[in-house]
Design a protein around this nucleic acid. Structure first.
Length: 119
DNA sequence: TTAGTGACTGCAT
DNA sequence: CATGCAGCCACTA
């Protein structure tokens, strides 16, 4: 896979999320690591939120939290939409609204970006 | 340049 | 299993 020469954290995040396969999910923390900024999970969440107002067309619904659940810390309206979208993709939720990560989590073989020591 | 913010996390209660 | 809380971090005003 040839990855674009993206410099900024946000551009990398948007690129990574755009690569998540239909019917699969990734966690905020996972995306942060893949973008070379482990620990920036919270920032990833902010970017997903911004992506909407920015009008970016990315599969933001495929990004969930480390508990394998949709984050309801944002507005419920968005959470409901996310749940519906994922179900449409075939992603299944158990009674506790949790996703079976062994089945649906996207674990790419390729390394996107190595960890950034500074920046 | 600085302070505030939040779609996060892991650990402790 | 459910809360609470203190780090963490890029983005914005």
């Amino acid at each position: 896979m040839t990855k674009p020469d993206l410099e900024t954290f946000s551009d990398r995040v948007y690129y990574i999320v755009s690569q998540v396969p239909f019917g699969h999910v990734v966690t905020y923390g996972q995306v942060a690591v893949m973008a070379g900024h482990a620990g920036a999970a919270r920032a990833v969440g902010n970017l997903m939120k911004n992506s909407i107002s920015a009008g970016l067309e990315i599969p933001w619904q495929r990004v969930i939290n480390a508990q394998a659940r949709i984050s309801f810390r944002g507005d419920m309206h968005r959470a409901d939409a996310q749940l519906a979208l994922l179900r449409q993709e075939g992603v299944e939720f158990n009674q506790a609204l949790k996703i079976d990560m062994d089945t649906f989590q996207w674990l790419p073989d390729d390394v996107f970006w190595e960890a950034d020591d500074h920046s």
